[in-house]
């Protein structure tokens, strides 16, 4: 049983860097290129881990602490999130609030370490990240509250295991609303296309990328790995709610969940290839829209 509980963290640790690879491959396919290998992030991480780190004289210990906090938070979140039919290693009442605020903690340290460098570009990115994530949080929490209200459980494990496909017939509209809100949260939190462009090379337009400009070597590797894990975590949350598969076979459930993750990555790739980045000024409207969808879902389920 203990081994089964550790299975999801192990799968996630091994497979999370695949997601950015799949996204990049999809984008390359749309652009008519061959694109980088699917395993590119593994090569990058391996390369970065063998390098030394350079620290600016103006930085303090906060700058070095940031990446470690980021990765530990991701590891902690992995232990409370069930995946497919696999149970979470730790479960307790209200762990979904811990889940949401673990990301808050990681974000706080990312912002603080960006400010710590004293670079004005990084300060700009930090300000944007703070603004957007503040608007993102109500969408995530109210969306989760809607599902909580529907299933009557305040624990992620219980919530996931009590959802069935038949719920779609009963509360289909609410599920579609929560699903869309969580997709927007997923894209925002992972700094994906309509909100942030992961490929941009201009500091003025970056949000997430600009905050890690001064990191190098193993620190950068930790940040990239934590970002991949975050993609995996929020993706798991999304597909756990939208695709509640309970076939009875644990192995089959895991297989389907992994497949859904791959499909989600392809979907993100398609969104990134077919949409332009929206203007920074219009991002808050989108996020308020996501919150509205969540509120609607909550009102529908609370009726």
């Amino acid at each position: 049983m203990t081994a089964l509980k550790l299975l999801h963290p192990l799968i996630a640790l091994a497979a999370a860097p695949l997601l950015p690879g799949v996204i990049n491959r999809t984008k390359a396919l749309f652009a008519g290129r061959t694109g980088q290998p699917v395993l590119q992030l593994y090569y990058d991480l391996w390369k970065l881990l063998r390098k030394g780190a350079v620290y600016s004289r103006s930085t303090t210990w906060i700058f070095r602490l940031g990446p470690m906090i980021g990765i530990s938070v991701a590891l902690l979140a992995l232990t409370i999130l069930p995946f497919g039919g696999l149970p979470a290693a730790i479960r307790f009442e209200g762990d979904l609030i811990l889940f949401a605020y673990l990301f808050g903690l990681a974000r706080f340290f990312t912002i603080v370490m960006a400010l710590d460098t004293g670079s004005s570009f990084e300060g700009m990115g930090a300000a944007r990240e703070a603004t957007f994530s503040t608007l993102c949080e109500p969408a995530l929490l109210i969306g989760l509250a809607a599902i909580t209200k529907y299933t009557g459980s305040v624990s992620l494990s219980q919530m996931f295991s009590s959802l069935r496909f038949s719920d779609w017939g009963q509360a289909g509209p609410a599920f579609i609303l929560v699903g869309s809100a969580l997709l927007i949260v997923f894209l925002t939190e992972n700094s994906r296309m309509p909100i942030d462009d992961p490929n941009t090379h201009l500091e003025l337009t970056m949000i997430h990328e600009v905050m890690i400009l001064d990191h190098s070597g193993p620190d950068l590797a930790l940040i990239l790995y934590a970002a991949a894990l975050k993609l995996w975590l929020l993706g798991t949350l999304l597909i756990g709610i939208v695709v509640p598969v309970h076939s009875g076979h644990p192995a089959l459930d895991v297989l389907i969940a992994v497949l859904c993750m791959a499909l989600l990555a392809v979907l993100v790739g398609i969104i990134e290839s077919s949409m332009a980045r929206i203007r920074l000024l219009h991002v808050p409207a989108l996020l308020i829209g996501a919150t509205t969808l969540s509120v609607l879902a909550l009102v529908l389920t609370a009726r």
Binding site: G169, Q170, A171, G172, P173, A174, L177, A285, I288, G289, T292, L296, L300, R303
Partner: peptide, 22 residues
């Protein structure tokens, strides 16, 4: 909520909100 009328109602709410934001 179980029928098509509900779905139409939700659609109505979403179009109203879209109108407010466009």
């Amino acid at each position: 909520m179980n029928n098509i009328a509900d779905t139409i109602m939700i659609f109505l709410v979403l179009t109203n909100l879209a109108l407010l934001g466009v």
